[in-house]
């Protein structure tokens, strides 16, 4: 393989994203305006948190289906505490503690009892959906107004949204942990072959529980950001759409859904790609009804492209 081909294969998502940006810019020059760029950066923060948490789960060979509805649930937890106390401190403590606890619950069932992650997190998805509607009076919304929500939703440093800077910092932290600590190689080892990982002395259970605790925490953080951006909370928010965008971002970024392979950089570019697509569909006045069609086609195209580039002939599971 020539160097150019290898460069394209390993960084295809960057080229594809830039090509899409160019096309959208040519169709609508407003796309490249500074305002629109910062709008994209703010829109992708909740998806980015889901993608980051999901990334480690997927590399370890698991899946966390609960992340989307869990973030809706935790945004409501924050709203309920805000409604009761008028402040955010207790709400944030509750969200962080609750989301980590949920993650540890998922992780323990997956690691210790060897239950399939798909089923465990499907059942927590059901429970999060149910609890979202039960802790808030039926048909009601809670409005979130105050300096904290304004800060999370609108504060900028050097023209960049604080929430995006927070996300970027988390990605850099994740990059360091994944590439420059033993934890990263443990996760890859578990995703490649759990038995071998165990035999080589890795505490597989602890790593798995940690991964799910982190994905839980990411759902909680996404819930906080979501509530601040919307300005209100209600159980009907489309959490599963958020989950799908997050999974799409990391898969488009070259993460293998069966585990064992993936890069943080790829996940980040996949996230930018999803953000650009979401934004452009709105910017180009594509009718709402077409959005899901585009998303489906984009994911299938990404899968097909990865198949062509990597000739991935992995044995299917689910």
């Amino acid at each position: 393989m020539t160097n150019a081909a290898r460069l394209f294969r390993e960084n295809n998502i960057i080229f594809v994203t830039l090509a899409c940006c160019l096309v959208f810019f040519l169709i609508s020059p407003r796309f490249a305006s500074l305002d629109n760029m910062s709008a994209i950066s703010r829109q992708i923060v909740p998806i980015g948190l889901i993608a980051l948490g999901q990334f480690f789960v997927v590399v370890s060979g698991n899946i966390d289906l609960s992340m989307g509805m869990a973030s809706v649930f935790f945004s409501i937890v924050l709203g309920v505490f805000f409604g009761m106390t008028g402040g955010v401190a207790w709400g944030i403590v509750a969200v962080i503690a609750g989301s980590v606890a949920m993650g540890v619950f998922n992780g323990t069932l997956v690691a210790k009892l060897k239950l399939p992650a798909f089923i465990v997190t499907l059942s927590t998805l059901f429970m999060a959906t149910g609890l979202s509607g039960l802790i808030i009076p039926r048909g009601q919304q809670i409005f979130l107004i105050g300096p904290f929500f304004r800060y999370i939703g609108a504060e900028k440093y050097f023209g960049i949204y604080a929430s995006f800077l927070f996300l970027a910092a988390l990605f850099i932290l994740a990059y360091v942990v994944y590439n420059h600590t033993r934890i990263g190689s443990y996760i890859i080892a578990i995703g490649n072959n759990e038995e071998n990982a165990k035999l080589s002395g890795i505490n597989v259970n602890a790593v798995k529980i940690g991964i799910f605790a982190f994905s839980g925490l990411c759902s909680g953080l996404a819930g906080i950001i979501l509530s601040a951006r919307m300005g209100f909370v209600q159980p009907g928010l489309d959490g599963n759409g958020l989950l799908m965008d997050g999974i799409a971002a990391i898969i488009i970024g070259g993460t293998l859904i069966l585990g064992g392979r993936g890069t943080i950089g790829g996940a980040f570019w996949g996230l930018i790609f999803i953000g650009v697509i979401n934004n452009s569909l709105n910017l180009l006045n594509v009718e709402d009804v077409w959005h899901l069609v585009f998303k489906g086609v984009v994911i299938i195209a990404a899968l097909a492209m990865n198949w062509v580039l990597w000739e991935s002939r992995q044995v299917q599971t689910h």
């Binding site: 069966l258 489906g296 991935s312």
Partner: peptide
Amino acid sequence: LSAFMVTLA
């Protein structure tokens, strides 16, 4: 390809 991803799409 992974059944999960294809059918998600």
